[in-house]
Simulated scan of single mutants.
Amino acid sequence: MNVTIYTDGAARGNPGPGGYGAVLRYTAPSGKVHVLELSRGYERTTNNRMELMAVIAALEVLNRPCTVELHSDSQYVVNAFNKHWIEGWQKRGWKTAAKKPVKNPDLWRRLLAAKQQHQVTFVWVKGHAGHTSNERCDQLATSAADNGPLYVDEGFVEGDVD
């Protein structure tokens, strides 16, 4: 099953209220296109945490192994996989090349678990450049941050700003 996913995250203040948005598209063998939109808001979080949560939520909703083309305007997310940063972080015990703790390790671990059963290709897309699906994700993310309901981001650590 081939699925195309677009994701975006937003935070008002960084840290501040935040939200994520995701749009999933699947074309059935009949030719019918199925679209699922996801979003959720949080009381206090960061932009990077919301970028990660968008990807996690989209992958976790898939109920069987899929081939996924995942589009994100977050170089933080895309480069972690395409430039193999995450492999280095794991080898170093979740430390950066500068030997500092990796930020958001709870979400990186959750993302690795969520993508494990899928074949995921990460594609960077320029944000706020008029791409319809990316713009829709931005609307979902900002609306969730602005309008709630807002949940507690359990893994957010005060002072751990991206």
Rank of each mutant, 00 (worst) to 15 (best):
N2D: 15
V3E: 10
T4L: 12
I5D: 09
D8A: 12
A11L: 11
G13A: 12
G16M: 10
P17Y: 10
G19T: 00
G19Q: 00
L24H: 12
L24D: 09
Y26R: 13
P29G: 05
S30H: 14
S30W: 13
V33P: 06
V35T: 15
V35E: 15
L38C: 09
R40T: 06
E43I: 14
T46R: 14
N47I: 06
N47M: 03
M50A: 05
E51S: 12
L52D: 00
I56G: 08
A57H: 06
A57I: 08
A57S: 08
A58E: 06
E60T: 00
E60N: 01
V61K: 02
V61L: 09
L62C: 09
P65Y: 04
C66A: 11
C66L: 02
V68G: 00
E69Q: 00
S72K: 12
S74A: 11
S74F: 01
S74G: 05
Q75Y: 13
Q75N: 14
V77S: 09
A80R: 11
F81S: 07
N82E: 15
K83Q: 15
H84T: 13
E87P: 03
W89K: 11
R92P: 03
W94S: 04
K95R: 04
V102K: 07
K103W: 06
P105H: 01
P105I: 06
W108F: 07
W108C: 03
R109M: 12
K115E: 03
T121G: 13
V123D: 03
S133D: 15
N134E: 06
C137T: 00
Q139M: 07
Q139K: 10
S143T: 15
S143W: 11
A144P: 01
A145M: 03
L150R: 10
L150T: 01
D153S: 06
G155C: 09
E158A: 05
D160E: 15
V161Q: 01
V161F: 04
D162W: 00
